[in-house]
Amino acid sequence: MIPQSGVTLSILSAVRAASAAFLFSAAYSLAKFNLTDWVTITVALVCFGLTAFSLVGAPTIIVARASWGLHSLRRNGGVSMLNVILAFLKIGFLGFGGGYAMLSLIFAESARFGLTVQQFADLNALDGLIPGPIAINSATYIGQMYGGFWTGVAATLAVCVPSLVFVPLYMHFEAKIKSNWVLTGILNGIKPAAVGLILGVALSLLLVTVFGVSNIHVWTHAHLDWVSLIVLVLVLGIDLKWHVNPLWLMLLAGVIGAVAYYI
């Protein structure tokens, strides 16, 4: 767990806001190219609505009829390594739409282990500060948190397995896949769903970072964090207009958070 006191808390809050801004920016970029008619817009809105109002509903849109249930396998009050491995195998196999779109599925599965929205926000903040893909960083972070070092290693390897299986198969059958109208249609349907999923996760991070509530159902308990709101709007604007390296924007957010603490 990341320390939550003093200047560290202020910096992390600002970095979390920057992470939410990147998600909104990614959703906007995907929407420009993939929301081209009323059908795709409807799919995106449905996925966004389910994610925003339940946090665990949106992944069902992506993995419907393909998902299998994971039983709660607990040992001595903790999470078993097998449970974590199965969860990240599922994420790897069914996490369509790219890294940002996978975040809602990552949260849904990790919530089974007790992951809170605040911890999920910390994960996203860290992901912007350290190298590596979102799925791998998430697997290492969550595996380490709930099972220790070796569970973190196992989760990291597990989330990589699907890519090692599917990428060679895709390369081998690439021509047939591209000429198959059914598969093409499925992939085209996933793209607008990914937009909705990313927007839903972005809203969740916005709520916990800017308004201090875990979901939209407890909106009456919200309290506005002006620094986080300013960081989010500033980073989003800079990213959309000038496409600055995210690392510099994360550092800018951290500096703003530190300065705000001492003002």
Rank of each mutant, 00 (worst) to 15 (best):
T8A: 13
T8I: 15
L9P: 03
S10Y: 08
S10E: 00
S10C: 02
I11T: 01
I11A: 02
L12G: 01
V15N: 02
A17W: 00
S19L: 07
A20S: 13
A21C: 01
A21I: 04
L23P: 01
S25K: 10
A26L: 10
A27I: 04
L30M: 12
A31G: 12
A31R: 02
A31M: 08
F33W: 12
L35H: 03
L35V: 06
L35D: 03
L35F: 09
T36M: 10
T36R: 09
D37P: 05
I41E: 03
T42E: 00
V43F: 01
A44H: 01
L45D: 03
V46Y: 01
L50E: 04
L50Y: 10
L50M: 13
A52I: 05
A52V: 03
F53N: 05
V56M: 10
G57F: 09
G57S: 07
G57V: 06
A58D: 06
P59Q: 05
T60M: 13
T60S: 15
I62V: 11
R65A: 13
S67L: 11
W68P: 08
G69M: 15
L70S: 06
S72D: 15
S72F: 15
L73I: 15
L73Q: 15
R74P: 08
R75G: 13
R75F: 14
N76S: 14
G77E: 11
V79N: 12
V79M: 14
S80K: 13
M81P: 12
L82V: 14
N83E: 14
V84E: 09
I85V: 15
I85D: 11
F88L: 08
F88Q: 08
F88I: 11
K90N: 09
I91Y: 05
G92A: 11
G95S: 07
G95V: 03
F96L: 12
G97C: 07
G98N: 04
G99N: 04
M102I: 12
M102S: 13
L105E: 04
I106A: 04
A108I: 08
A108H: 06
A108R: 01
A108C: 09
E109K: 05
S110R: 07
R112F: 10
G114Y: 04
G114F: 02
T116K: 00
V117L: 00
V117W: 01
